[in-house]
Write a protein that binds this DNA or RNA. Structure first.
Length: 507
RNA sequence: GAGCCGCUAGCUCAACAGGUAGAGCAGCAGACUCUUAAUCUGCGGGUUCUGGGUUCGAGUCCCAGGCGGCUCACCA
């Protein structure tokens, strides 16, 4: 027994008891950590196969099999013992008559804890209450758990522990497990949809020599052998368009972007983006396509047209509303057209609202600031906001009819920006000028990518491009209001010292 | 980075106004041949996040720090 400062902590109490049991299990001649144990079914597979059979026919058919799984509950009842065993899906009850086991197995039974993995050979039955069960004739341990799990009823509620020790969270919470299952299905549905449409999935570098493709602070790292600084990518955009130059007419990439910015319920420093490029299409085609993709995902994964999100209900019924940024300020922001006709009047609105903006903000930048203040939160049902100011869209093509605005849209759902897309700027001379303007403004995130300009000179066809934030899409589809609920291991400050103190006796 | 809130047994939570830190689950010992949040009897388990301070006395009040949650700002 281990004593700390005169006390034996409860943690040590329960952990030491389990280590003691481990030792006794070995003494009995069991290997508590065998390489494997051949089985016929996982617990949920027994349900899948035999749930249609009633008590009598199960008894008659005498189905013998071997089942493995993890103990999630134990109910002793004298010479009868009920053990719930799970492999993450439906649990199966092991029905054990002590008298059916050898003395050695009975000794093992006493040493089993919740969390242990076991294997059993037995007969599929229904108990008197009708529950499908395995009546156990022989029993082995296949992995020992040396720490107590959270309480069976309330589970793990401490948010910090849930994120830091996600292995426990997904082990004890079906709801949490479900979210990540859904996330996988969303990705699967997107991929199969795009693949069916003839898109190819590519992988471009995550280590960049220039942090381009978006306006964000990058993470910096260093390559020792080449002795150069590198940036974790903030966006794959320019690489993907190089591929369109090279003749990949329909490409996409799903992968991690890294942005060295604040953390919030809508932001994680690393997040997953779908970026897609489609040659010979423009932003309106991409708008149709975006709606198609998400509706497809909704049908395949969610199966209904509405989703609860916080205290709101999101209605995905099509067609989704399309409104220009400027019109949205009038229709949803409560402003009149005259108020946003010029920089001066628009800035006066900001003043009136108490919205602080930099002195040198351009007309377009003020419009975007007003949009974010007055409109964005209100866009609960999917809404396309179109025609963004050129100066905030350095990689997008100008709209030929709306001077000062680019052929760009953002998709808002649940008050969040979910997608961003445009007709790609493919005029190398104008692109060079836009880069120069960005540099002149000393905006971070737009170092001049000369090779990209060279690629444009080779020739980019008219192309529509799209980015969808997968984490946020998962949020709105699973009704989660914090991005950390849809990321398995969200970034938290480390607690290394506490962790080391907590594993004493192991190393 | 700023503001507000939180941190008590392995887990979920109590502790009125500053006055002996409790319960359920989990654990241990025992009873029980159809339970399923099993039940019943008994027992063990606490540096109340950390460090200072006020006080006869601090989980509770004050100060500093740590971590987390929410809101705001940068950003998708």
């Amino acid at each position: 027994m281990v004593f700390i400062g005169g006390y034996m902590s409860e943690l040590h109490n329960q952990r030491m008891k389990r280590r003691e049991k481990l030792r006794k299990i070995k003494e009995l001649g069991f290997d508590p950590f065998p390489t494997k144990w051949n089985y016929d079914y996982l617990p949920h597979e027994v349900h899948e196969r035999y749930s249609s059979l009633d008590r009598g026919s199960l008894s008659e058919r005498d189905i013998r099999c071997r089942v493995v799984g993890r103990i999630i509950a134990k109910r002793g009842h004298g010479k009868l013992i009920f053990i719930d065993v799970s492999s993450g899906k439906d649990k199966l009850q092991f029905f054990i008559r002590k008298n059916n086991l050898s003395a050695k197995e009975q000794a093992l039974l006493k040493l089993l804890d919740i969390g242990d993995f076991i294997g059993a050979e037995g007969k599929v039955i229904r108990t008197k209450t009708g529950e499908l069960s395995l009546e156990v004739f022989s029993l082995v341990i296949i992995s020992k758990s040396l720490r107590p799990l959270p309480e069976k009823w309330h589970g793990l509620a401490d948010v910090e522990t849930r994120y830091r020790q996600r292995y426990i969270d997904i082990l004890v919470s079906n709801e949490v497990r479900q979210i990540f299952d859904t996330r996988y299905k969303i990705l699967f549905a997107i991929r199969s949809f795009l693949n069916d449409k003839g898109f190819i999935e590519v992988e471009t570098p995550m280590l960049h020599t220039l942090a381009t493709g978006a306006a964000a602070k990058p993470f910096v790292t260093h390559h020792n052998a080449l002795d150069i600084d590198l940036y974790l990518r903030i966006a794959p955009e320019l690489f993907l368009k190089r591929l369109v130059v090279g003749g990949f007419d329909k490409v996409y990439e799903i992968g991690r972007n890294f942005r060295n910015e604040g953390v919030s319920t809508k932001h994680n420093p690393e997040f997953t983006m779908l970026e897609l490029y489609w040659a010979y299409k423009d932003y309106e085609d991409i708008m149709d396509f975006t709606q198609e993709i998400i509706v497809h995902v909704l049908e395949k994964v969610i199966g209904q047209k509405t989703v609860k999100f916080a205290d709101l209900e999101i209605d995905f019924s099509t067609p989704w509303n399309r409104v220009s940024l400027k019109d949205s300020l009038i229709e949803m922001g409560g402003l009149n057209r005259k108020e946003i006709d010029s920089v001066e009047s628009a800035k006066r609105i900001c003043e009136r609202l108490g919205l602080e903006i930099p002195e040198d903000y351009s007309y377009g930048e003020v419009l975007v600031a007003l949009f974010e203040e007055l409109v964005a939160d209100k866009l609960v049902n999917p809404t396309f906001i179109t025609l963004y100011p050129v100066e905030v869209s350095p990689l997008a093509k100008r709209d030929p009819y709306k001077s000062g605005f680019a052929q760009r849209f953002e998709l808002y759902i649940g008050g969040m920006e979910i997608a961003n897309a445009f007709s790609e700027l493919n005029d190398p001379l104008e692109q060079a000028n836009r880069f120069k303007e960005q540099l002149a403004k000393k905006k971070e995130g737009f170092p001049l990518d000369a090779d990209y300009l060279r690629a444009l000179e080779i020739g980019l066809p008219p192309t529509g491009g799209l980015g969808i934030g997968i984490d946020r899409l998962t949020m709105v589809l699973t009704g989660q209001i914090s991005i950390r609920e849809v990321i398995l291991f969200p970034l938290l400050k480390p607690k290394q010292e506490e962790d080391l103190a907590d594993i004493d006796g192991l190393i």
